[in-house]
Write a protein that binds this DNA or RNA. Structure first.
Length: 281
DNA sequence: GCCCAGGTATAAA
DNA sequence: TTTATACATGGG
């Protein structure tokens, strides 16, 4: 991974597309604060990144944070170019990938989010829409997360495990409050062990996650893909069901192979860009 | 008012 | 094993 240190910034060649990566529905805390400029707190660190000419700039970042935190988080060592070419062997998939990003060098990356944050975020996502999911999560962070500069960290599960449903009323998460608390408690009590899920097959990991209240097959798959970077996980929701019926009637999730999760994310992104193609069936 | 939103728990057939 | 309904909340 080649990068340059310039003052208090790190610069890399443009290798992923900020808009599709942050807007594709895999994460909820990245906000566009200006043209080609995004900000979020991830891995307990605030970060602003911008695109200038053919470079991505990581602002206020140290050399060691970039190496230890942001290279893994943005999955910068994975060869997305190769995957782009592989997906583009298939005509339909190729069209979808090409309409989602402008070039192979600007691919949609799957972020390595913190397992607890991904789990919690997708528990909140159920029967909900993206703007409101973001609103609930920000409110959750400002109420129970530690302050970092002008930002708030994602709350610690050990803190959330001690709360009651009433304590979560201000964030307006509705019926999901008890699910959030159950997830936090199962992590704190060691009923669910992050390292164990890391070391498990997708199928075993899914069964473990589904022991949490409010975690069904969809939330479990999203958690595996975004929180545990199990790239074969293929979250099926109403949009994906329509996509599979309308665009890939002869395919199954398995037929997309070991990087099904990335394919799925491109398809999901595309389905939201062209909702008219996915009328209810 | 009604319908929908990156679903799931629960009960009933 | 499959299918129907409630669930909190807010925007269109």
């Amino acid at each position: 991974m080649n990068y340059k240190v310039i003052d208090n910034m790190i610069s890399i060649p443009v290798q992923f597309d900020l808009d599709s990566t942050f807007n594709c529905g895999q994460c909820f805390r990245w906000n566009k604060i200006a043209d080609k400029k995004w900000h979020a707190v991830a891995n307990h660190h605030p970060l602003t990144i911008t695109v200038k000419d053919d470079e991505i700039l990581f602002e206020n970042t140290t050399d060691s944070d970039f190496k230890n935190i942001w290279i893994p988080y943005f999955d910068l060592d994975f060869d997305y170019d190769a995957l782009y070419n592989e997906f583009c062997c298939d005509t339909l998939m190729c069209d979808i990938v090409k309409q989602s990003v402008s070039s192979p060098a600007q691919s949609l990356h799957i972020l390595r989010q913190e397992p607890w944050e991904a789990l919690c975020s997708f528990v909140i996502s159920q029967n909900n829409n993206i703007p409101r999911i973001k609103k609930i999560i920000e409110s959750f962070c400002s109420l129970y997360g530690n302050k970092i500069g002008d930002d708030f960290d994602f709350p610690d599960y050990k803190t959330i495990a001690t709360l009651s449903e009433k304590d979560l009323e201000p964030i307006k998460s509705g019926f999901r409050a008890r699910y959030i608390i159950d997830a936090a408690k199962k992590l704190k009590d060691g009923e669910i062990i992050i390292e164990e899920i890391n070391n498990s097959s997708a199928e075993a990991a899914k069964q473990m996650l589904m022991r949490i209240k409010g975690v069904g097959p969809k939330v479990a798959d999203c958690t595996m893909l975004y929180g545990f970077h199990k790239l074969e996980a293929f979250p099926i929701d109403v949009w994906m069901k329509r996509a599979m019926t309308v665009i890939f009637p002869d395919e199954t999730p398995e037929s997309f192979g070991k990087y099904a999760g990335i394919a799925q994310q491109y398809i999901f992104s595309y389905s939201r860009m062209h909702p008219e193609l996915f009328e209810k069936v």
